[in-house]
């Protein structure tokens, strides 16, 4: 590859990585909130599917992407409400309920899609890339950073907002305390359950948004199982990022980068490695990184545990 080719390759790679990272960024930042409050939601995959489907169905009916995104968030939160009711109010095991919601999300979206949308075939209009004067036309940098749609750009905003909320507001402070010392929060007269509900709502709302991006911001169709395991990857991202929203942003990008690299390297005829090796790379890298950045000191101490009120 000559230099020009290589720069083009890099620019495309970075652009693709960001798009592929977008659903992961939303879902993992959401899950950071949830887990910081002590609620481990392994039902992300199902929640994202619900978001993807609600977003698609709404945009299909109304033609509005904005309404679709709202429906994606709403669908995710509605699903999250079920999760919160079972794990916080009934105090059921979070892993159990999360596993059930994955099944429900997969089953319900596929069942309804199958019943009503089978022969529609045609998709919806998706969010278009924004042309930013001058910036979008920059050589290489334009391709890499400035030819995305608004949903992709909003990931930066979400990461910053999430950080501010989590570390600079009393809501965020209390939310984190709920995951570390719920008793102290309780004694201080705040409602632990309410904070956990709020955290789960933020988490599932963002997961729904991540799912909706797939149908409204990337491909214009709902396909059964369209999330293709992204909900599980998002769980890994959160641990990898040590429960920090900014960390989740960059770790998601890293995943996106590997995913894009894998697809692009396959297309290079000069590379003779079996493509499965490239496909396995991001997963291997996650394991290696977990070993390198060892220790789980950052994990909320009450993660996964229901709180019994006094």
């Amino acid at each position: 590859m000559d230099d020009m080719m290589f720069l083009t390759f890099l620019a495309t790679l970075v652009g693709a990585a960001w798009r592929l990272a977008t659903p992961l960024i939303f879902a993992s930042i959401g899950e950071v909130f949830s887990e910081r409050a002590g609620v481990l939601n392994i039902g992300l995959e199902g929640t994202m599917l619900v978001g993807a489907f609600c977003g698609f169905a709404t945009a299909f009916a109304t033609g509005s992407i904005l309404l679709g995104l709202l429906a994606g968030v709403g669908g995710g939160m509605l699903f999250g409400l079920v999760f919160a009711f079972f794990t916080i109010t009934i105090k059921a095991d979070q892993i159990v309920v999360g596993a059930a919601l994955n099944l429900l999300g997969m089953g319900l979206t596929a069942f309804v899609f199958r019943t009503y949308y089978v022969s529609t075939g045609k998709g919806i209009e998706i969010a278009q890339p924004i042309h930013i004067p001058w910036l979008s036309d920059l050589p290489f940098l334009g391709e890499a950073f400035f030819r995305q749609n608004l949903i992709v750009y909003s990931t930066i905003l979400v990461a910053i907002l999430a950080t501010l909320v989590l570390y600079r507001t009393s809501f965020g402070l209390t939310l984190r305390a709920v995951g570390e010392h719920p008793k102290a929060v309780d004694v201080a007269g705040r409602n632990v359950a309410a904070y956990r509900y709020a955290a789960v709502m933020v988490g599932t709302g963002l997961a729904g948004l991540g799912g909706a991006f797939l149908t409204l911001g990337h491909s214009n169709q709902f396909v059964e199982g369209i999330t293709s395991g992204r909900g599980f990857i998002a769980l890994a991202v959160v641990v990898f990022a040590r429960w920090s929203p900014i960390g989740a942003f960059f770790v998601s990008l890293l995943f996106g980068l590997f995913y894009a690299l894998q697809l692009m390297l396959q297309a290079q005829a000069s590379i003779v490695v079996p493509y499965q090796v490239l496909q396995a790379l991001p997963y291997l890298m996650t394991i290696v990184t977990l070993v390198v950045v060892r220790g789980k000191g950052a994990a909320p101490s009450k993660l996964g545990q229901p709180y019994e009120m006094r």
Binding site: T12, A16, L20, E143, L263, Q266, A267, A269
Partner: peptide, 26 residues
Amino acid sequence: PISEAYIGNFTDTTAAKEAALSMISQ
């Protein structure tokens, strides 16, 4: 010249799109 890529499943429309985009960019 012909390049070829497999996305590894039949559901990930996002991956199919990105694979095609990267080929086009190259």
